[in-house]
Amino acid sequence: MALAALGAASLVSCTNNNDNGGRTVSPRPTPPNTASFSGTPPSALASLAQSAEASARASASAAESSLSARASEFEASVSADTARNATTAENELKHVQGRGNALSDVSMSGMPRTQTGGVLAVLLTITNNTDQKASYAVQVDFEDAEGRVVETRYAGAQNLAPGQKEQPIAFSRQPAEPKLTPRLVKAQRY
């Protein structure tokens, strides 16, 4: 069809200038011979269309795969940072007597289980209220109804500038039942 349109366009653009007062006369185009049409595009065009479609699918698949890989890398990076901060916090708090020097710099609020996939989690807000850069280590205990510690989690924030906040999350790995209560046990600025 594209070739037929191209042929018709070239016929229309051809003019016959004769001496009839400068009038231009165009020959009437002849209709294409439809007896040779099969109803499908020529094989070269079909091949080109299939190739373009396959290329588009491959590009989309590669983009999706790349996006998935980047998301996995980011998640692994966040998990690694969280694990590193937790390990650092646990090591810092081993030597702290009492509840630490930074309880007033840390607040804690529960997160709805609908946002955490049903897992008990608390959002810690650590604020550097000093006039110098500081790092923080925090310990959260998850207690049962009798007040027994069922699980201890650690979180931290590194090199916070004065006034800067960071909000790590402490997740419990315990099942939903029995109900546990999170308690801020220690917070140390170092």
Rank of each mutant, 00 (worst) to 15 (best):
A2S: 14
A2W: 04
L3C: 11
A5C: 08
A9L: 13
S10D: 07
C14F: 11
N17V: 14
N20L: 08
G21V: 00
G22N: 10
R23C: 07
P27H: 13
R28C: 10
R28K: 11
N33G: 08
A35R: 13
T40K: 14
T40V: 13
A44R: 13
A44C: 07
A49L: 13
A49V: 11
E53L: 10
S55V: 10
S55Y: 08
R57L: 10
S61I: 04
A62W: 07
E64I: 12
S66I: 02
A69Y: 10
A71C: 05
E73I: 10
E75T: 14
R84E: 13
R84W: 08
A86V: 04
T88F: 08
A89V: 06
A89I: 02
E90A: 14
L93W: 08
Q97T: 14
Q97W: 08
R99Y: 02
S109F: 03
R113D: 03
R113I: 01
T114W: 09
T114S: 15
T116D: 04
T116C: 06
G117N: 07
G117E: 03
G117C: 05
V122T: 03
L123M: 14
N129H: 11
T130K: 08
Q132G: 05
V138S: 00
Q139N: 09
F142R: 00
D144G: 08
E151W: 02
Q158H: 06
N159R: 09
L160P: 01
Q164I: 02
Q164A: 15
K165H: 12
E166W: 07
F171I: 00
R173P: 08
Q174Y: 12
E177G: 00
K179V: 09
L180C: 01
P182Y: 03
P182V: 08
R183G: 00
K186T: 04
A187P: 12
A187S: 06
R189A: 02
